[in-house]
């Protein structure tokens, strides 16, 4: 169990030493259980930091904002940003390093191990508590969480409220860090693609029915895109834009933007959007599950990502987010890559 005091101590030290300009971590929010991302700028503020099973967010997304902010500053503070990462988040960071979007020197990584547990799925917890409002959640031992409600403490089996992705986690301890809190223990996962395989094993008609139903719901709010640390393009190809408009852009060039898909939230366009999104994440998605968590329509977006993750592993023995030096999935090949599908 990672001790919060250890986390605070590490944070305080690096801030006092002036090693980092600020730390991005988790902070208690006004409305109970779920924390908010916290930006800790001074040693005094470290008291705000928390570490609970509700620390679900992938904070690497904020590095993307930080990079943009820094590029606009005239005299930027060149010190790194401190970042609290879980195992999955650290893999996202590895991909950002691999894609040279983030420099290793620009981030001080405070790794927090989930040890033999993980974070919760808020929706599962709400359902489990049947209307009781959770105020606090704590790690117990590896198999349970202790939830405090108005009516007192409840012990809940972790497996019942853990996020789906935690149940299929490949790295519950950070794979890259400057300091590591907690043990490198690994929870044994029999099959990281268990839930996906249920969909895969459906007959073609059923799969189509499933996805038609799910993707037809999409209202194209793009929350999935906004929350994804890998979606750091300045402009998205899904926004019918081919190139950025600058002072030299001619009217003709503007007229030549490619409309790969329509903005209207209809089935066909939703499909194209979600397929493009998934393909662009091939070999990059590390299954932090944020896209699915933020979806207001509860579309099981993770399955699309997981499908590509599984194929990358099965066909090309490729796993994202473990080695910042490895070439990307689609910018590499092996002579013996399978080609039984080719005529």
């Amino acid at each position: 169990m990672v001790n919060l005091e250890d986390l605070k101590k590490e944070a305080k030290t690096v801030l006092e030493e002036g090693k980092v300009k600020y730390i991005i971590g988790y902070e208690k929010s006004a409305n109970g259980l779920m924390p908010v991302p916290g930006f800790i700028k001074s040693p005094e503020e470290v008291e705000k930091l928390i570490w609970t099973p509700a620390c679900v967010y992938n904070l690497t997304k904020f590095l993307v904002d930080e990079k943009r902010r820094k590029s606009r500053e005239k005299k930027p503070d060149e010190r790194p940003v401190g970042l609290v990462v879980k195992g999955c988040d650290s893999r996202a960071l590895v991909v950002l390093l691999q894609e040279k979007f983030i420099n290793r020197d620009d981030v001080f990584i405070i790794g927090v191990s989930c040890e033999e547990t993980g974070v919760i799925d808020e929706k599962k917890l709400i359902k489990k508590l049947k209307g009781k409002k959770a105020e606090k959640i704590e790690f117990d031992e590896k198999d349970n969480f202790i939830v405090t409600t108005q009516e007192g403490k409840v012990k809940i089996a972790a497996s019942e409220v853990l996020a789906e992705r935690c149940l299929e986690c490949k790295a519950n301890s950070p794979v890259i860090y400057d300091v590591l809190l907690g043990e490198k223990a690994k929870r044994s996962v029999d099959n990281p693609f268990q839930s996906l395989e249920k969909i895969e094993s459906l007959p073609e008609r059923e799969r189509w029915k499933f996805w038609k139903e799910q993707l037809s719901k999409c209202i194209r709010c793009y929350a999935c895109r906004s929350v994804c640390p890998m979606c750091y393009c300045d402009e998205c190809v899904a926004d019918t834009i081919n190139f950025a408009v600058t002072a030299d852009t001619t009217a003709e060039e503007k007229a030549q933007k490619i409309k790969w898909l329509e903005k209207s939230p209809v089935k066909s366009e939703n499909f194209v959007y979600h397929l493009v999104r998934a393909i662009h994440l091939a070999g990059r998605c590390i299954d932090c599950g944020e896209c699915e968590r933020v979806c207001p329509l509860d579309i099981p977006i993770r399955f699309l990502n997981k499908k590509l993750e599984k194929d990358a592993k099965e066909l090309f023995d490729y796993e994202a987010g473990f080695d910042p030096e490895q070439p990307s999935l689609v910018s590499s090949f092996k002579d013996e890559d399978p080609e039984d599908f080719i005529r």
């Binding site: 894609e99 040279k100 979007f101 750091y232 689609v330 910018s331």
Partner: peptide, 26 residues
């Protein structure tokens, strides 16, 4: 290259069969 859109990830550099691409200032 459209420099406005390029993030310097280097994936194109990796795939180029002719080493015609390189990264310069990101």
């Amino acid at each position: 290259v459209n420099l406005n859109l390029c993030t310097g990830c280097g994936m194109c550099v990796e795939v180029c069969p002719y080493e015609a691409l390189s990264l310069k200032d990101g």
